[in-house]
Design a protein around this nucleic acid. Sequence first.
DNA 1: CCTCTATTGTGAACACTTAAACAAAATTAT
DNA 2: ATAATTTTGTTTAAGTGTTCACAATAGAGG
Lengths: 214, 214
Amino acid sequence: MATKKIPKATAKRLPIYYRYLSVLLSANKRRVSSTELSEAVQVDSATIRRDFSYFGELGKRGYGYDVESLLNFFKGILNQDTLTSVALVGVGALGSALLNYNFHQDTNLRISAAFDTKPELANTVKSGIPIYPASEMQKQIKEQQIDAVILTVPSSTSQKVADQLVSVGVKGILNFTPVRLSVPKNVQVQNIDLTNELQTLIYFIKNYAENNPE
Amino acid sequence: MATKKIPKATAKRLPIYYRYLSVLLSANKRRVSSTELSEAVQVDSATIRRDFSYFGELGKRGYGYDVESLLNFFKGILNQDTLTSVALVGVGALGSALLNYNFHQDTNLRISAAFDTKPELANTVKSGIPIYPASEMQKQIKEQQIDAVILTVPSSTSQKVADQLVSVGVKGILNFTPVRLSVPKNVQVQNIDLTNELQTLIYFIKNYAENNPE
DNA sequence: CCTCTATTGTGAACACTTAAACAAAATTAT
DNA sequence: ATAATTTTGTTTAAGTGTTCACAATAGAGG
Ligand SMILES: NC(=O)c1ccc[n+]([C@@H]2O[C@H](COP(=O)([O-])OP(=O)(O)OC[C@H]3O[C@@H](n4cnc5c(N)ncnc54)[C@H](O)[C@@H]3O)[C@@H](O)[C@H]2O)c1
Ligand SMILES: NC(=O)c1ccc[n+]([C@@H]2O[C@H](COP(=O)([O-])OP(=O)(O)OC[C@H]3O[C@@H](n4cnc5c(N)ncnc54)[C@H](O)[C@@H]3O)[C@@H](O)[C@H]2O)c1
């Protein structure tokens, strides 16, 4: 809990900044201004400066920000200096796509274990990640001290699985099911509801035609 | 543009309400109060009443809301009374998972065409959806008058594809690539950045431990 | 060293979103 | 009928997030 009181809206933008700073560093850019950043990430430059200012005075007036030191600073903030292992529960259509994806290429994150009830998946390896039977889920998560889980099981079982996860100390769930999970308030749930996103997009197309995106 | 001035935050909740109302109707519930709804969808009851009030006086004091008529009302608002066809571009890991999913089971939405550059995918059918070669994308989208597209191509080509889509009249893009697309302001872009979501979740776990979810 | 220029960091205004609280109105119970 | 109860719709207030606008200040150029 090094830095406190960072607004949620700011926190959600940090990975966006982080990614673009990585791009700049790879391109050997040494410095960047909030205006330049603004164009690339499509966030108002004043908002960017305000966001950064929550963490201190990271830039230099008349100059901008030093790409490398800013990147290193955010590396710490975003826990990118240590490898974080997450688990995935439910190796179906969506779960397989996520397993197959190499999160580690952009971030210091990897999926280290997956779980499914299907007997034919148990004890196989997919994209280098071991798939365990669901019956071993709680044991493995405890042993591997996993904090964060990607949940891609059918909606009908998601609350039950979430309860099991919480009971072995999971502190965050990336929930792809449309169910609004009930969890203790010290557990973070991030909902990704793809059906809603699509419905909302259609709604915006029909009703906000003249406004700008996002 | 029947109803104007609906706040964005409200618009994003409409599909959540809609889904839960469908559940209630299937369970033969005739009426529901904002308090009951509040528990199920995890939105403050005053916020729900406020949201509904943008559309008029939909409830009855001392009684609540009539499930069926409320559902029918939102059916109109959310364009659920006509079938909307969307296209999917990029039938890779993520695209396949989405193609395979039956959006039509919950909504009046379906993916009616998919496109990919891979020759082995061209002119095949997956989950009942025809996959066309990318070279036919613009022609088909124009012919089928498709407004909304799910974009699951590699990041490196996403802007190029987006430009092609916009040039044939696409009005909304559900963008799964980490690239911030540049589009005219009458085109809606909804970004779903899975890597960011995971990074943000980890950040929240480490920094907001005592707060409540979402 | 001084001047000019660029760009930050932030106070203040504004915009949007949520939530508390309650009068008004309808239902339900007696 | 009337009273008690319920629950809406909305007023008002508080909270959160964004943007403007500019003094402060560091760097660049002479
Ligand atoms: N696939 C999509 O595009 C899409 C779109 C919108 C929403 N969703 C939601 O995402 C979730 C997953 O969707 P999907 O298409 O991947 O479903 P799926 O049926 O393909 O996969 C679910 C997997 O979970 C496994 N499973 C079931 N119970 C389990 C348990 N207790 N523990 C571990 N594994 C278990 C199943 O064996 C299966 O492999 C669903 O809730 C769905 O509503 C998916
Ligand atoms: N899979 C994941 O879990 C995941 C996670 C985070 C981000 N993403 C992002 O989602 C996007 C897609 O990811 P993926 O894993 O499905 O990639 P993928 O490589 O499996 O699929 C991309 C598909 O797009 C096709 N394609 C390439 N150029 C095309 C064009 N011009 N027109 C039509 N099709 C074209 C390719 O042939 C391929 O089938 C990427 O931008 C990726 O960064 C994916």
